[in-house]
Amino acid sequence: MSEQKANRFGFAINRSRAINYDTSDRKVREYVTMREPSFRLCFACGGCTATCTAGQHASFNLRRMNTYIRRGEIDSLREEVARCMLCGKCLLVCPRGVNTRNVVATTAEALRKLDRNEL
């Protein structure tokens, strides 16, 4: 209905770009943090992204993915997580010792569970 009506005016109401922390879903964060506690240690240096094989040719960004997990931005997270090739190079770089590879794997698992209403 919204689309149809909008055509009458020649414009629609823009969608919010803001992250609303009070309505976002942080179940994935809880799941990942519990299974991979080192996830908490990420301080967003971007070393992982710099070395990432996938990130060189796709818009995969592990540093940004960590932020999405923390803020509960599930839709954005879904797009990110599928691009990782799980090579593990990021593990070697991380100055905080985050088990980055397992963060990706656990996130993918959490998303599957979320889809099955198991989180």
């Binding site: 770009r17 803001a18 992250i19 609303n20 922390y21 009070d22 940004r64 932020t67 999405y68 803020r71």
Partner: peptide, 12 residues
């Protein structure tokens, strides 16, 4: 702004 996400954020 959650500058690492590159988006504005609202929080209570």
């Amino acid at each position: 702004e959650d500058t690492l996400a590159g988006r504005p954020l609202k929080m209570e």
